[in-house]
């Protein structure tokens, strides 16, 4: 494999990581901590939304983020010929 191939692969990987980590930050530190008060004004069932993100929602999103990354990277590995 050429160095250029490796570089392009790495750039795409970094792009995915940054996007997913931005979401990771938004749901936990954003919705669950910094914006908690504002979101608590909204109620879904018995949950105040900020509280729900802090004790439930952010964890569900974490799981989804990892599986999305797994999928994206498996495709990326194939695209650049790194899968085995």
């Amino acid at each position: 494999m050429t160095t250029n191939n490796a570089k392009a692969y790495w750039r795409e990987n970094i792009k995915y990581v940054l996007i997913l980590l931005a979401i990771w930050f938004l749901v936990s530190y954003g919705a669950g901590i910094l914006l908690k008060e504002e979101l608590n004004a909204i109620k879904i069932g018995g949950f105040k939304l900020g509280f729900w993100f802090a004790q439930q929602g952010s964890m569900y999103v974490f799981v989804i983020l990892i599986f999305v990354y797994v999928k994206l990277m498996n495709n990326l590995d194939k695209k650049y010929g790194y899968d085995e």
Partner: peptide, 29 residues
């Protein structure tokens, strides 16, 4: 701990799960 801390218990919930996102994206592979 959560039942006595209420909302504050979220630090453990998010703290002890969010680290796996970092592990999967930044370290493990």
């Amino acid at each position: 701990i959560i039942s006595f801390a209420g909302y504050d218990g979220a630090v453990y919930l998010m703290g002890w799960t969010g680290g796996y996102v970092l592990l999967a994206l930044l370290l493990a592979p």
